[in-house]
C-alpha cells in the first residue's frame, strides 16, 4: 500500500515524569544536545499519573508514537509510582498490539534526571523507527472509514420532508 509520506514527519507525544525524565530533558537542553524536533512533551508529576486513556487519546488524535518516561525502577520520587506504570504499560502494550498498533509506536523508557543523553538517543531512535513504520494517522483513518456513510448522509440532507428514500 502506498502511503502519502510527502513531507510527513512522525508526531510523538511524550509523557515525562517531573522528577526524572522531564529533568533529564532539561539537562539535554542545558547540554545543548540536538535531537529530532518531533516530540511534544507533556509533564506529569509521576509516570504513575499516566492513565492509559491518555495513550489512546494521543493515538486517536493523530500521534504516530507515544513515549512514556519515568524514573528507573527503585528510583521513583513517589516510591513506586513507576512500578504501577509498568503494570499498566505491560497490559496496555499487549492490548495495543491486539488493536493493530505496532510495538514501536508505544514506548516506555526509564530515564533518570542525569540521563540527558538517553533522552536524545530515545527520541532520535523512536523518530527513526516511526519514520520506518510510516504514518498511523488515526484521524485520517477514521475519516476514511466514515466515508462510506457520506452518500447516505448527503441523501438525507437533500431529502424533502416526507419524501421516501431509496438508498442501499
Amino acid at each position: 500500500m502506498e502511503m502519502k509520506t510527502n513531507g510527513w514527519q512522525p508526531k510523538i507525544v511524550a509523557f515525562f515524569c517531573n522528577w526524572c525524565t522531564y529533568t533529564a530533558a532539561d539537562l539535554a537542553g542545558v547540554s545543548r544536545m540536538k535531537y529530532a524536533p518531533n516530540i511534544r512533551i507533556i509533564r506529569l508529576m509521576c509516570s504513575g499519573r499516566l492513565d492509559p486513556q491518555f495513550v489512546m487519546a494521543a493515538f486517536a488524535r493523530g500521534a504516530d508514537g507515544v513515549l512514556i518516561g519515568g524514573c528507573h525502577p527503585g528510583d521513583c520520587h513517589y516510591v513506586e509510582g513507576n512500578y504501577k506504570t509498568l503494570r499498566r504499560m505491560t497490559l496496555l502494550k499487549r492490548m495495543l498490539a491486539d488493536l493493530g498498533i505496532e510495538e514501536d509506536r508505544c514506548r516506555l523508557e526509564w530515564i533518570s534526571a542525569s540521563e540527558g543523553d538517553k533522552v536524545k538517543w530515545v527520541v532520535n531512535d523512536m523518530t527513526e523507527k516511526l519514520r520506518a513504520l510510516g504514518p498511523l494517522d488515526l484521524p485520517g483513518k477514521h475519516k476514511e472509514w466514515d466515508a462510506e456513510m457520506e452518500a447516505l448522509e448527503k441523501e438525507v440532507q437533500t431529502q424533502q420532508e416526507g419524501e421516501p428514500s431509496h438508498v442501499h
Binding site: 508529576m45 499519573r49 492513565d51 509510582g81 504501577k84
Partner: peptide
Amino acid sequence: CGVCVAACPSGSIVQNLFTDDEI
C-alpha cells in the same frame, strides 16, 4: 503523584493542576 487518579476506575479522583481534562 497522581497514581490514584490514573487508577480510579470511575474517574472520581481529581489531581489539582493535572486534571484529566487539563491533560
